Computed example of a mutant assay.
Amino acid sequence: MSSFALEDVKVLHVDDEPDFTDLVKDILESEDSALSICTATSVDDALSILQVEDLDCIVSDYDMPGKNGLDFLELVRDEYPSLPFILFTGRGSEQIASEAISAGVTEYLQKETGTDQYKILTNRIRNSVQSVRAEAAFERTEERYHNLVDTAPIPIVLFDEEGRAVYSNEAAVEFFDADSHAEVEGKSFVEFLHPEDRDVSRERFEQLMTEDQPMPEIEYRIQTMNGEIKTATVATAPGIYHGEPVAQAMVYQ
């Protein structure tokens, strides 16, 4: 069993052999208590279940009467582009694998004899669901961050590892006398400072990015877009933006 905590994973297994779906259900649920397996013996039945159940993952055979597993995958991707879909098939070929990858399959696993395949399938399910949930959690965190920072009353600018501005809030655009966010973003942090303050700022930036620790507040002479010099206190701290390390600069007057 995988080491990370993952609970309440609802999986739909689709295969035209009902005895096989019953077997897989029993094995997977005994292999991992977090998994709850519902079954369907045709793509049409599976689509009906998909409309009413909140699923975390789909496991589907390829060779079925009527619509096959690839047909099902394409229908799922039209409505649920990020839902994990594992093609678990007894009919394997490079062409099927290639078509499945092109259609957006999450995993491709060929049926084999023995029970080891179910341990592999369990891990593929867990890993796929974990990845989707982690991405969703990251997106929620990013959204909360933007909601907080976008409307903050103090100027905030984020700089990437190269020292280029990658984000600015409304207060920063106003503070720098810029016409838009685009005028602020993309510039190096030293371009916002009086020339005599730039060497100190470079040393502090390098230390912050290396040690991943906040820096003490410091007073800088800040140069706006129209050349005006404003004296302000700047606090800097490490952060993460779009999954990448950044330096967060907050300006206080």
Rank of each mutant, 00 (worst) to 15 (best):
H13W: 01
G92S: 10
A136Q: 15
L121M: 11
Y252P: 01
A235Y: 04
A171V: 00
E107V: 07
P245Q: 03
A103H: 04
S168P: 10
E79T: 06
I27R: 08
V200G: 01
E29Q: 15
A172D: 02
R202Q: 13
D177H: 15
L75I: 05
M64Q: 05
S82F: 11
A34V: 00
G186K: 06
E185I: 05
A237L: 09
V9K: 06
V234W: 01
Q95K: 14
E29T: 12
T115D: 10
K67G: 00
G66F: 03
Y252N: 12
F205K: 03
I96Q: 10
I101L: 13
K187C: 10
I120M: 13
R126F: 01
V166G: 10
V9M: 04
D199E: 15
I156F: 10
T89V: 11
D22P: 01
T141F: 07
G227M: 02
D78Y: 07
P214Q: 04
E203L: 01
G239Q: 04
N127P: 00
S42M: 08
E94M: 14
E74Y: 01
H13D: 07
S48G: 14
L55N: 04
A100G: 04
A235N: 00
E142M: 11
T106R: 08
T122M: 12
A152R: 01
E79C: 03
G239I: 02
Y252S: 11
E94T: 13
L193Y: 09
L75G: 00
D54I: 09
V9P: 03
A247P: 00
T151W: 11
K187A: 12
Q51M: 08
L121I: 09
E206N: 02
D212L: 10
T233Y: 08
A5F: 09
G239R: 08
D179I: 04
T224E: 07
R126W: 04
